[in-house]
């Protein structure tokens, strides 16, 4: 699936009609973007920043989006790019000439319940695996749609999803006191 943005880049001033049209889309779709950003980033503050940057870029491209039906897909793609950029920031911190900040170690964790365990597990996943899981199991996108959105192959989507789920099963297996009703094999 290809979006129909003609090209990236700054646009001229948006017309009043376009602003109204954009605002209508904003009201209708911002919440969905916020939810996805929250699941990707793990916290609402980072999510808010990701979404604002995404909205601004969609706004800049608004007059060149010929097919309004593709706006959601375009916005989601921008959001994923912003997420990827944001995720690289820790790498930048590590790789700046200041070198790494000292490691911080976490004490052994306690979990409130099975859902807490799963949510914290999601937070430990590498970003690509996390994005694949969110798009697959929250957004309910197909593997092909995810591959197109993330610019990766379907095989990579499958492998990333498979690894993440295997790790989730292992995590659940390690906490039998929380996971009584989970079918481990599927």
């Amino acid at each position: 699936m290809q979006h129909t943005i003609a090209r990236e880049g700054p646009t001229g001033s948006s017309s009043r009609a376009q602003d109204d049209e954009f605002e209508a889309w904003l009201v209708a779709r911002e919440r969905a973007l916020q939810r996805t950003a929250h699941l990707l980033s793990g916290d609402v503050h980072t999510a808010a920043d990701l979404v604002q940057e995404t909205l601004a870029k969609v706004y800049l491209s608004w007059d060149r989006i010929r097919d309004r039906d593709s706006v959601d897909a375009y916005a989601r793609r921008v959001l994923l790019n912003e997420y990827r950029t944001a995720w690289r920031r820790p790498v930048r911190r590590r790789e700046q000439v200041t070198d790494q900040v000292p490691d911080r170690a976490a004490p052994r964790q306690e979990y409130d319940d099975q859902h807490d365990l799963v949510w914290r597990f999601v937070g430990t996943l590498p970003p690509k695996q996390r994005a694949v899981l969110v798009l697959r199991f929250y957004e309910q996108l197909t593997e092909a749609e995810i591959a197109d959105l993330m610019g990766i192959s379907v095989g990579t989507v499958k492998s990333q999803s498979s690894r993440a789920l295997a790790a989730l099963r292992a995590t659940l297996h390690d906490h039998p006191e929380l996971t009584g009703d989970v079918e481990e094999d599927r």
């Binding site: 904003l26 699941l39 609402v44 808010a48 099975q114 859902h115 929250y138 309910q140 989730l168």
Partner: peptide
């Protein structure tokens, strides 16, 4: 685990208030 994951992700967003921009 797949259904559990979906449930947890949905629950996490449904329990959160997001500010409008």
């Amino acid at each position: 685990p797949e259904d559990l994951l979906t449930e947890v992700l949905r629950e996490r967003t449904e329990d959160t208030d997001y500010a409008s921009t």
